[in-house]
């Protein structure tokens, strides 16, 4: 009851403000505590695993020189890549590096290794404010992502914006709807009992309105990711976030 009151006051005091609020603020104190403590946060297992994969596979290029320090890099993704001539998110960037520098096959989306590596790289940007470029070549992806966000779809005929712009703070059964920001992902969802990518979260929201989910890593989900990053600009990266 007390938690509900606090949550309501939070919503009432913030609902009018045009402020970007992390999904973290919509969690129970218990779940927040789980995220805050690196030793308790289950997502840290993936980050650690990613750290050792990184040391084995990536550290040849990324220990020194201009490529050395990956701190803060994830805050600027997704980004248009001139070489690849497409919009890359962190998962795509990692697979691109594997392809070019390691002559290795791409890791499957949602595989343990790709989740671990992307969680490790994003964790190096923990505390950095999201700041993506939506101009130039990125612009058409941005527009595509924004269109997806505002498009009604599924048997329930709902758009992302109707829940996360128009009705955040309200209760959908036991869930308080947040603003739907991407800053916790890859993140640990209690419902999954595992780490998962942002695109997996998209698939869950699409399935929730009985829309056919798009493929993980698909162009439209990457575009949606860019729009969400821009929409969340200034918000601090929390990877690995813990969510319901």
């Amino acid at each position: 009851m007390r938690a509900a009151c606090i949550a309501f006051l939070l919503w009432a005091s913030l609902a009018s403000a045009d402020e970007v609020i992390s999904g973290y603020e919509f969690l129970t104190p218990e779940t927040q505590a789980l995220q805050d403590d690196d030793f308790a946060n289950p997502g840290m297992l993936w980050v650690e695993e990613g750290g050792s994969l990184f040391a084995q596979q990536c550290a040849d290029c990324h220990t020194q020189g201009s490529n050395g320090n990956l701190e803060g890099v994830a805050a600027r993704y997704p980004a248009f890549d001139q070489d690849a001539q497409t919009l890359l998110n962190i998962e795509g960037r990692i697979n691109r590096c594997r392809e070019i520098h390691l002559q290795a096959e791409p890791l499957a989306y949602e595989s343990k290794a790709l989740l671990a590596l992307s969680a490790y790289v994003a964790n190096l940007s923990k505390g950095h404010a999201i700041d993506v470029d939506i101009d130039g070549a990125a612009q058409r992806y941005f527009t595509e992502g924004r269109d997806y966000f505002f498009r009604r779809k599924g048997q329930f005929n709902l758009a992302c914006s109707q829940c996360h712009d128009d009705h955040w703070g309200r209760m959908l059964r036991g869930d308080r709807i947040s603003q739907g920001h991407p800053n916790a992902f890859p993140g640990y969802r209690l419902e999954w009992q595992a780490m998962g990518s942002l695109h997996r979260r998209f698939q869950d929201c699409d399935a929730g309105i009985r829309a056919q989910p798009l493929a993980l890593g698909s162009r439209r989900y990457r575009s949606l990711e860019l729009y969400l990053a821009w929409r969340a600009r200034g918000l601090i990266i929390e990877v690995p976030g813990v969510r319901r």
């Binding site: 779809k153 599924g154 048997q155 056919q212």
Partner: peptide, 9 residues
């Protein structure tokens, strides 16, 4: 007049 409805529905 619905879009992208899940195949099962």
């Amino acid at each position: 007049d619905l879009h992208q409805v899940a195949e099962s529905h």
